[in-house]
Amino acid sequence: MTIASDDPRVAAAAAPPPSVPPAPATAARRRRSRLTRNRWGYAYVAPFFLLFAAFSLYPFLYTAYISLHDVRLSDLDGAVFVGFGNYTELLQDEFFWNAARNTLTIGILSTVPQLAIALGLAHLLNYRLRGRTFFRVAMLMPYATSIAAATLVFAQLFGHDYGLINTLLEAVGFDRIDWESGSWTSQIAISVIVTWRWTGYNALIYLAAMQAIPNDLYEAATLDGASRWKQFVHVTIPALRPTILFTIVVSTIGAVQLFGEPLLFSGNGMTNGGVSNQYQTLGLLMYDQGWTNFRLGQAAATAWTMFLIILVVVGVYGLIARRRARAER
């Protein structure tokens, strides 16, 4: 990374063309002063970009390089170039598709209720309530809790023989559920953890956006005789549309990368997402390949595939948003 040079040619190329060309002498001085000022700007942002290059850009490219090789951690020198072999193998791999399916279902099971509840909570907190600040802070508490601590507690709650949830179920006359070993039950349990953790965060984002909606709109709606619910549907939601899109994109990225919860949910450090991989997600599969099986090439290919999936999903959201915006105009 280099700090901007004093070379006027570079500066001329970088600076936007001035609308009225000033006298050459003043122009040069102005450029110089802008550069001296900018140079320190670059210096200030440099630490971030240095760290970014070392811990994001380099691993990103190195992962791409590794993903084209058959390589194990214990024998790095014995890497064999296999081209896109890891990717084609991955696409034919039942474990990959199983993880992709699980990621999708857990993603839907957690994102949809999470955002719906967040929207409702934000709407309620937007009213003048007594103790509003307390509720707002309380809502953000799960977000401030460490994933590991939360998941370990939830894993115990969902335990088969000694878990609190099963004890309660039994107390009201239901059978005990083996949460961990069933595919739906384990995925629901994991979705509950995710939902618990992120709902408050999304609610706060919605709340902030709601407070930016001009009050006139609501007054006008009230005059027109719209009920609270009608106001929510016809005023609040349309005004929140960009915010909702943002939270959907962020939650989707989070859902594709879901890792900590399924890893810790097993309670014994296994990385395979349950005895029949019933809650193995793509993130966990990658970890399993790389750090339990030590097949780095395979894991790197999974990582890049996940990245491409995220790009595609975000791209699709972008298209939908643009199409809707155009349709409204």
């Binding site: 894993a155 335990g159 088969h160 023989d161 000694y162 097993s266 309670g267 014994n268 005895v275």
Partner: peptide, 11 residues
């Protein structure tokens, strides 16, 4: 039970 899991320990 899964050996070395929480439920195993409680058992």
């Amino acid at each position: 039970l899964i050996q070395f899991g929480d439920e195993w320990n409680s058992a």
